[in-house]
Amino acid sequence: MKRTRKLTLTTLMAAGGVSLTACGDNPADNVRIENPGKSVDAWAYASLQECKDKNEVPDDACVKADAAAKEDEAKSPKYDQQATCEEVYGPGQCVPRSQANGGGSFWGPLMTGFIVGQMLDGGWGGRGMYRDWRDGGFYTSSGGRVWTDYSSGRTRVGSRGFDAPDVYNAPQKVRTRSSVISRGGFGGRMSARSSGGSRGWGG
């Protein structure tokens, strides 16, 4: 039986408390990015103010990560119906939005916060974070699984989890149920699950 450990975050944006759960100490079980890169420490926050108040990372790293999360949210996938969006992100995790210049309305995922981490080159990076209802995991907007190292209790993510999501370069079309089945939410790279086996994490 897999062991589980929970890292409790503070209040979500527009919601109550949330737990970030990682199954055992093999995060590759639910990885979306095929080659997630060397695992690095990460800190998860629900807001910019929380990030600054905790004093775990530099304030400028908090600001950078918060800005990246807002950018992710603005360019997040669009869904034609609430139910279609919630098939990926879960009940209550989608919100109505309007396209610019009278382009119509759509539904989009609610970001649960953002992560901050030190990159392999020594700099700080950050990305928005969201929950995928289909496996209950938390991911960055590029598809990197955010997990808790069972042995140390530290929050970890593959270094490529800080990459800009593939969806930025994809046509911003409103997604239907058929496209949800074929692609899903953020992070269009092949997942380790769908390729029939674990590719593993670096580090």
Rank of each mutant, 00 (worst) to 15 (best):
G122L: 07
Y139F: 12
G92W: 01
G103F: 06
T176L: 08
G161H: 08
C62F: 03
A170G: 00
S195G: 04
T8C: 05
V31N: 14
A69M: 15
M13P: 13
L110V: 08
A74N: 11
A170L: 13
E71T: 14
V31M: 12
D163T: 04
L120D: 13
D59Q: 12
G90Y: 07
W133S: 13
V157P: 05
S152N: 09
K38D: 02
G158D: 07
R189G: 13
D59G: 13
V31R: 12
L120N: 12
K54A: 15
S198H: 00
G161D: 00
K6I: 04
D149S: 02
R183G: 04
S194W: 09
S76C: 07
K173C: 01
D53S: 10
T11S: 14
R183S: 00
D132P: 08
Q118V: 08
A100W: 11
D132G: 04
K2V: 14
T84R: 04
D41H: 07
L9H: 09
Q118E: 09
D60C: 06
G136N: 08
I33A: 00
R3S: 14
P27F: 01
S178I: 00
S159K: 03
S47G: 06
D132A: 10
Y168D: 15
T8W: 12
T10A: 09
A100T: 10
A67K: 14
Y139Q: 01
R175E: 09
Y139A: 02
Q81I: 08
P36F: 04
G161Q: 03
Q82H: 02
G153P: 01
R189M: 11
K173D: 07
D41Y: 04
D166Q: 10
D29A: 11
T155S: 05
R131Q: 11
G104S: 02
G113C: 07
A192T: 14
V18Q: 15
N26I: 04
D72R: 09
R183W: 01
G17L: 13
S194L: 11
D80H: 10
V40Y: 03
